[in-house]
Design a protein around this nucleic acid. Structure first.
Length: 794
DNA sequence: CAGTGAGCGAGCTTCCGCTTGACTT
């Protein structure tokens, strides 16, 4: 017999709570939701007032069985899932599925995992809030209806297996719209002028003062005119203004801000951040990592204060409570913070240590005093000229929170170092040493990174802390967007120097348009976004989720029945689905580029069965070519499209066999005597590569092939060098070499032993996976792809 | 792996939010 059974959502939480509650309590975890709408079909009985058809999730069968047994034996069952819509629903599903009875079931909630908070919760139980549960059911049903009615429209009208959803479709739209903004952006040339002046410090040493002209010139003529004027002009300090300012620390981390800072400061992807944070959480180093709250417990605020006072002194301490401003925040947890504030570092790998340190610094900084700054602006007048030079400097009077943590921003400029300015006064005359004008260009809005997309989604109230990372993975796996780095192109810019009485123009080179791990839309992403925006305008509206949230709030307040809210949405929505199926054209994003100058036939692009392609002519003479990576149907030119048809191109002969360049599914390649060699990215251009370079690549590949084989035994077993180091291959199956063995010293017996062992474990794992429910399609896809890739590389 | 792009039709795909593993490369 069990006295008390407490059910929480996370096993790590269960472990901690069990410690606080003592032996009369058994604490178990449900591992999140245990039940969901039927996986197959719609799972909603439209005819009967949208009655949901729930089923136990396949991977939760075992845990449900265990909980059922424990619940039967327990005197009291405490449902302690999170205090938000989803948590309330989990409690209700548990109540239903475990067959609990009202008289011995209690619903409790706590926002922080401290003994006091939990005991307080135990002493203040309540009933399940059915209105809140209904709000969750409405949310769930709405998402299913949108996803499962719109996706099939895409299958019919665009391409099979595509997906649409309240969150993902809008996330893709953000990236598509940004790309179009960039394409339509017209850059403006201007000249930025900086002056360097000689000043002297108290000891008579000269100190240069750098100042920027308040005006930017748009032509070289104007710029040179100005420099000509400066030749004989005098410069004097017309104003020195000093203003005190202060800077406040940022609030402690939420999931979204943690992902952003880890991306900017540590270069983590959002899923990487979550994986590392999960480890820290499981080891008890930090509080829960999926949260939208900036709230800290009193305990944490006190602990932070103690650490700050002890290590830095009292004047650095300033306890604060932060208010959450995020739309639709549910605040079931605390902000992300260290569980033990005084623990400066933790054991673990480098990533774990770095992320922990980031979280700790951010938390401490949030509880520290403002930084006191002094901003000085020096204005330098030019005789006979209305424009002035300005130098801005910032001095930290008191560092405050900056002592431990400085927040980063996406658009940080490199040369924005707030310099220390020399002590000069109004009326001082200045000598110019150099006046320099540099040709510059306005820049288009930046492409999203994973983290800045999360920031935008959060601002729009789209998605939740638990879904930001998976959503980004999904839209990449579906091929709607891709994350890429691109080398910029080099450009020659004019730099015009005035030194003494000489004006000199010189060319300097700068790299433009380099992108690092940015999000780009694909053709399919653009076509799908356009299609959905056309036919499902309301769902693609950035306010759709925010409006839905308002309606869900009314349900949670008990003012509206959830079925009536869904009914209001569904009636016109479903009619629109039917109408779109009947009336809309198949959408391939087809676009005419012009005429082929050689044949006069029409050149066009569209999405074909295997992706984006170009086409010349129709009927008998039709020719096709796939687009290259990085080319978009929307922006490809006629010339670029025509270039695609120049392949395969014959380069000549090598060792009496023809050498040709072609473009395949995996990019440009050289073909010679059954051997395929990829071109070197960024170095070789398939249009211009010479026979000589091609032979070089062929020889390089032969060299690699030669070094590939480390050992070979009589029965055909080989030890090879692969992309990930040495491995064993036998009968087309690969086996990894256990750690501590050296590939070149393995004997035949040892090798066969490894094959036998590895083979066994391989069989086991395949059995396991077949036993389990079919994995999600996205997972399948990634698995397939990685397999393919390894094959390709080895 | 190095091309492909028709049309037919079976049978499949798909959502968002809660949670962790079990995969290995």
């Amino acid at each position: 017999m069990i006295e008390n059974l407490v059910i929480v959502e996370s096993p790590a939480k269960a472990k901690t709570i069990e410690r606080f509650l003592g032996e009369n309590y058994v604490v178990k975890s449900s591992f999140g939701h245990i039940r969901d709408l039927e996986k197959k079909d719609l799972g909603i009985d439209i005819e009967h007032n949208f009655q949901p058809k729930y089923e136990i999730s396949p991977d939760k069968k075992a845990i449900v069985k265990e909980l059922k047994q424990l619940a039967k034996e327990a005197k009291t069952v405490w449902l302690a899932s999170d205090e938000d819509r989803e948590g309330e629903a989990i409690a209700w599903h548990l109540f239903e599925v475990l067959g609990l009875k009202k008289e011995n079931t209690k619903r409790i909630v706590f926002h922080e995992i401290t003994k006091d908070a939990i005991l307080h919760a135990i002493n203040n139980p309540r009933d399940i809030d059915k209105n809140l549960v209904d709000a969750q059911q409405a949310r769930r049903v709405l998402d299913r209806l949108v996803g499962f009615e719109v996706s099939p429209v895409l299958w019919k009208k665009v391409k099979p297996s595509l997906s649409a959803g309240r969150v993902q479709s809008v996330a893709v739209k953000l990236i598509v719209e940004r790309e179009r903004e960039i394409n339509h952006f017209v850059e403006q040339k201007y000249y930025k002028v900086t002056g360097t002046f000689e000043t002297k410090d108290a000891n008579g040493n000269s100190i240069p003062l750098k100042a920027e002209l308040s005006e930017r010139f748009s032509t070289q003529e104007e710029t040179v005119n100005f420099l000509e004027h400066c030749k004989k002009a005098a410069f004097s300090v017309s104003d020195v203004e000093t203003k005190p300012s202060s800077r406040k620390p940022a609030p402690p981390f939420t999931t979204s801000t943690l992902q952003q800072e880890a991306s900017r400061k540590l270069g983590f992807s959002v899923s990487q951040t979550m994986a590392v944070a999960q480890k820290l959480y499981e080891q008890g180093h930090i509080t829960y990592m999926r949260t939208d709250s900036v709230n800290l417990s009193q305990l944490a605020i006190g602990a932070a204060k103690a650490v700050i006072c002890n290590t830095l002194g009292e004047k650095y301490s300033k306890p604060r409570n932060f208010a959450t401003k995020t739309k639709g925040a549910q605040e079931a947890h605390e902000a992300i913070r260290p569980t033990y504030m005084d623990k400066e570092s933790i054991s673990g790998d480098k990533n774990e240590q770095q992320l922990y340190s980031l979280i700790r610094k951010r938390t401490l900084a949030s509880q520290m005093a403002e930084a006191e700054l002094e901003k000085t602006t020096i204005t330098i007048a030019i005789t006979g000229e209305k424009h002035t030079f300005e130098a801005v400097g910032e001095v930290i009077v008191f560092d405050g929170f900056l002592k431990v943590y400085m927040e980063s921003f996406d658009d940080e400029k490199e040369d924005d170092e707030a310099a220390l300015l020399p002590a000069i006064h109004k009326g001082d005359q200045l000598q110019r040493s150099l006046i320099q004008a540099l040709e510059q260009y306005t820049t288009h809005p930046p492409r999203y990174t994973e983290a800045s997309l999360v920031k935008k989604m959060e601002a729009l109230g789209i998605g939740r802390p638990s879904t930001y990372a998976p959503t980004i993975t999904t839209i990449q796996n579906r091929g709607y967007i891709l994350r890429e780095s691109r080398d910029g192109t080099e450009r020659q810019l004019d730099q015009i120097d005035l030194k003494g009485q000489d004006i000199k123009v010189k060319k300097i080179s700068r790299i433009f348009g380099a992108e690092k791990k940015k999000l780009f839309p694909s053709d399919i992403g653009m076509v799908v976004t356009d299609f959905l925006s056309n036919y499902f305008t309301n769902i693609m509206d950035y306010n759709f989720t925010a409006n839905a949230e308002d309606a869900l709030d009314h349900i949670a307040e008990g003012e509206v029945e959830w079925q009536s809210m869904i009914g209001t949405f569904y009636q016109p929505f479903h009619a629109n689905v039917e109408k779109t199926l009947k009336e809309s054209e198949r959408n391939t994003g087809a676009r005419e580029l012009g005429k082929d100058p050689q044949t006069g036939e029409t050149v066009s692009v569209r999405i074909g069965r295997f992706g984006p392609m170009a086409q010349i002519g129709e009927g008998e003479s039709v020719r096709y070519a796939g687009l290259l990576k990085g080319q978009l149907m929307e922006t490809i030119t006629l010339e670029e499209a025509l270039d695609l048809f120049k392949f395969p191109r014959q380069l000549g002969e090598f060792e009496e066999k023809p050498v040709s360049v072609g473009i395949g599914r995996f990019g440009p390649y050289i073909k010679h005597n059954q051997l395929f060699v990829s071109l070197k990215k960024g170095v070789d251009d398939p249009g211009t590569i010479t026979l000589e370079t091609a032979i070089e690549r062929i020889n390089e590949k032969r060299e690699i092939e030669k070094n590939r084989k480390i050992q070979e035994f009589e029965n055909g077993v080989q030890i090879l060098n692969g992309r990930f180091g040495p491995y064993i291959t036998f009968n087309k199956v690969n086996y990894k070499i256990p750690k501590g063995k050296e590939a070149d010293k393995l004997t035949f017996e040892e090798t066969m032993e490894i094959i036998a062992k590895e083979g066994d474990s391989k069989k086991k794992t395949t059995k396991k996976t077949t036993k389990k429910a079919a994995p999600k399609a996205t997972k399948k896809e990634t698995k397939k792809e990685t397999k393919k890739e390894t094959k390709k590389k080895e």
